[in-house]
C-alpha cells in the first residue's frame, strides 16, 4: 500500500503538480484493488480514506464556547477527491463517510455524486434521504436523478413524494425518474407533477410519459404502454411526442 498519509499531505498542498501526482498515485492504487481477490485490501484502503474524509480538527476552548462546527482536517478539494475514490471502492466505511459528507455543504455534491456511482441499499437509503429531506432544490434534484437509475418500493415511494413537492424542478425531476419504473399507475403521478408549470414543464411531462410507456413496453406490459401512447397522441402536447407515440403504436401493432 502506498503511503496514504503522504498522499493526503500532497493533496492538501495546493501545489497543482503535487496534487496531480498524489491523485494519480491514489487512483492507480484504487483501480489496482478493484479486481477480484483483493477485497480485504480494498476494505482497508476504504477505511483509511473514509477516516481521512471525516477527520475534524481539535477545537479550542473559544470554538467550543461558541458552539462552532468542527472544521475538517483536509481541504475541500482533497475531500472531493476522496469521495470520488470511495465511489470506486464501496463498502460500509465508504457509505458511512459519504453520509457524513452529505451534512456538509462544501462537499455534499461530490458525496452525492459518489453515492450515485455506488450500488447497494445503503447508498440508496442515503440518496432517498437527500432527495426527500435535503436542503436546496438543485441538491435534491441531483439525488433524485441518482435514484432514477434504481428500482424498488422505497425508491418509488420517495419519488412519488417528491413528485408532489412544492418546487417545480423537484417535481419534474421526480416525474422523469419515475418514468424508468415499470409501473403503469405512475402515469397519473407523472401527469400530476406538472402542477402549474410552464410550457417547457409540460413538454418534460409529456416526454416522461413517453419514456414511461417505453419502460412498460420493454417490461412486457404492452397494454399499459399502448394506453399511454394513445393518450399522448390524442392529448395536447408538442408534435415530437405525438410522433414518438405514433411510431411506438405502429411498432406495438
Amino acid at each position: 500500500m502506498p503511503d496514504i498519509k503522504a498522499i493526503l499531505e500532497k493533496l492538501d498542498s495546493g501545489d497543482q503538480t503535487e496534487v496531480y501526482k498524489a491523485n494519480l498515485a491514489l487512483f492507480q492504487y484504487v483501480h489496482e484493488l478493484g479486481g477480484s481477490g483483493k477485497e480485504e485490501a480494498r476494505a482497508e484502503l476504504a477505511e483509511k480514506l473514509a477516516t481521512a474524509l471525516t477527520a475534524t480538527k481539535e477545537q479550542d476552548e473559544n470554538q467550543r464556547r461558541r458552539n462552532a462546527p468542527p472544521s475538517h482536517v483536509h481541504t475541500v478539494d482533497t475531500r472531493n477527491r476522496l469521495c470520488r475514490a470511495l465511489s470506486l471502492l464501496g463498502g460500509e466505511a465508504a457509505t458511512d463517510a459519504l453520509a457524513h459528507c452529505l451534512k456538509h455543504f462544501d462537499c455534499r455534491e461530490m458525496a452525492r455524486w459518489a453515492l450515485d456511482r455506488l450500488s447497494g441499499s445503503a447508498s440508496t437509503e442515503l440518496l432517498i434521504k437527500a432527495a426527500t429531506e435535503g436542503i436546496g432544490e438543485e441538491f435534491r434534484v441531483g439525488a433524485i436523478n441518482a435514484l432514477a437509475h434504481r428500482r424498488g418500493g422505497d425508491v418509488v415511494t420517495a419519488l412519488r413524494e417528491c413528485s408532489s413537492d412544492q418546487h417545480l424542478e423537484v417535481r419534474l425531476a421526480a416525474a422523469e425518474a419515475l418514468a424508468n419504473q415499470p409501473d403503469a399507475s405512475l402515469d397519473v403521478v407523472i401527469l400530476s407533477a406538472w402542477g402549474n408549470g410552464d410550457t417547457r414543464a409540460q413538454k418534460r411531462i409529456a416526454k416522461a410519459r413517453i419514456r414511461l410507456a417505453s419502460t412498460l413496453a420493454d417490461a412486457g406490459d404492452t397494454r399499459a404502454a399502448r394506453k399511454i401512447y394513445t393518450s399522448v397522441l390524442n392529448g395536447e402536447t408538442d408534435l415530437a411526442q405525438k410522433h414518438a407515440a405514433e411510431l411506438a403504436l405502429a411498432e406495438l401493432a
Binding site: R112, W113, A114, F139, V141
Partner: peptide, 19 residues
C-alpha cells in the same frame, strides 16, 4: 462480466441538475 468496479465506469454520474 464479474467486475463491479469496471461496471461503475460504464456510467459517470452527472453534476446536478443534469441527467
Amino acid at each position: 462480466e464479474g467486475d463491479e468496479q469496471a461496471n461503475g465506469m460504464v456510467r459517470k454520474p452527472m453534476r446536478a441538475p443534469w441527467h
